[in-house]
Design a protein around this nucleic acid. Sequence first.
DNA 1: TCCAAAACATGACAAATGTCAGTTTTTTCC
DNA 2: GGAAAAAACTGACATTTGTCATGTTTTGGA
Lengths: 248, 248
Amino acid sequence: MSVFSQDITFKFVTSGNYNYMGRCENCIIRQFNSLRAMNKEELKRVSDTKTTKFLKKGEIIFGEGDKLNGVYCVRDGVSKLSKLSPNGKDQIVKLATKGAVLGQRSVITEEVANLSAIAVNDMEVCFVPKDAILDTLNSNPNFAVEVLRHIAHDLKEADDVIVNMSQKTVKQRIAEAFIYLEENFGEDQNGYLALTLSREDIANVVGTATESAIRIISEFKKLGLIKASGKKVAIANRQGLNDVAKGS
Amino acid sequence: MSVFSQDITFKFVTSGNYNYMGRCENCIIRQFNSLRAMNKEELKRVSDTKTTKFLKKGEIIFGEGDKLNGVYCVRDGVSKLSKLSPNGKDQIVKLATKGAVLGQRSVITEEVANLSAIAVNDMEVCFVPKDAILDTLNSNPNFAVEVLRHIAHDLKEADDVIVNMSQKTVKQRIAEAFIYLEENFGEDQNGYLALTLSREDIANVVGTATESAIRIISEFKKLGLIKASGKKVAIANRQGLNDVAKGS
DNA sequence: TCCAAAACATGACAAATGTCAGTTTTTTCC
DNA sequence: GGAAAAAACTGACATTTGTCATGTTTTGGA
């Protein structure tokens, strides 16, 4: 995490071009997604057509069923990708952070969005109109293959989630969720998980009732596996949490 | 389904070339997967390097963790794609039938297989060495995009499964499973589902204990929603099953 | 800084699901 | 066609999870 910020600073400082801001060519985030496979001209086109948006926590990037006219490249903050189930509950399928490209799947298949994307944090995202994406896809095999690799990876992750959902207990899944949050978003200066989710969001990630999630989180506190200050959570006993996640 | 068989027959009968057998160029199955986007030369290469295999029910096409040297194109029969969970249970993630290309994802990301593929039926599959696939991917954007579309579609389906698993009851999921089997594999002359799965496989599809699946299936029989003769199952009340699946 | 709204927490109970321990039926294969 | 194996089935019970009701704490503006 801190190394990452350093890199950005470095880029900023060494660039001789004072117009670099807002130019995709100089956006380091791009190194983490499929846009890295675009060539100069393709990137220029993206840069010229994109718009940058700032979203506040809770704002909707797009909703299930929306027709997407482009993709959203996350520059900062975290978004939850979720789907409303018929019984009225939201299932969070994925948490997307910097580097993620949202809406890619729907743009490729030219379907409406199957998930909704909501800011969990304050966010900065770049909207890239779909034509720049689709045209590049059809002409640059490197880009197409790079996108393919990313989607293929998402698919593998989704398969893993299916297995977890059906074969692990709620307690195991919540323990895993904390480990996941720590591994993917890190901790703040005080050792608390850098990404704070409400109990309801945690419940929606692991697919259980909010009360069940709360109860289990309380139990983890009593067992000394985690500690909490308000809604901030810190992992107190990583090995113990791991054992719970593994089911021992 | 029956229309589909007709088409094959038609092809066989009208082909003037008696070498058509075993040639991908003449394989109608190809129309249902990404190989349709290959051009003549690419297809020829696939055809020249591929080998056809016949598998008996229960045989393993590849296992989780196997390094795949190519993909398997299903010409006939059905395969279950499953993953072993840490607690020793198999979760079936997908059922693949004619037209499906197995192992595609792992070949693209150059990882070992994350799922195992086992024949549910007697099967006929064509093994295509990966080089023919990867080279085409890198040179023919049409093919790359076609593969992308297929994987993107799989990803959407996987997201739907995640939501079903976490938000629906076992009873709802079993009702859905029967509807799914009817819609995707059809019925035989006597109205029984054309694809017969063991109770254990059904349990592994919906992610529950075999006994629970059996109990619910028995209940469906008593309610007249389905009827069964041995392990063959027929849908007796489609609307009723639908209602159960929807949770009413 | 204070107050409402939201989020968190807990108890009591009901419903769903899993587990274990059998018996019966079906399938397979000689 | 019959025996052995596999699959299907059933009951009893434990465990997990969901639901409802209610109280407490935290949080985010006016």
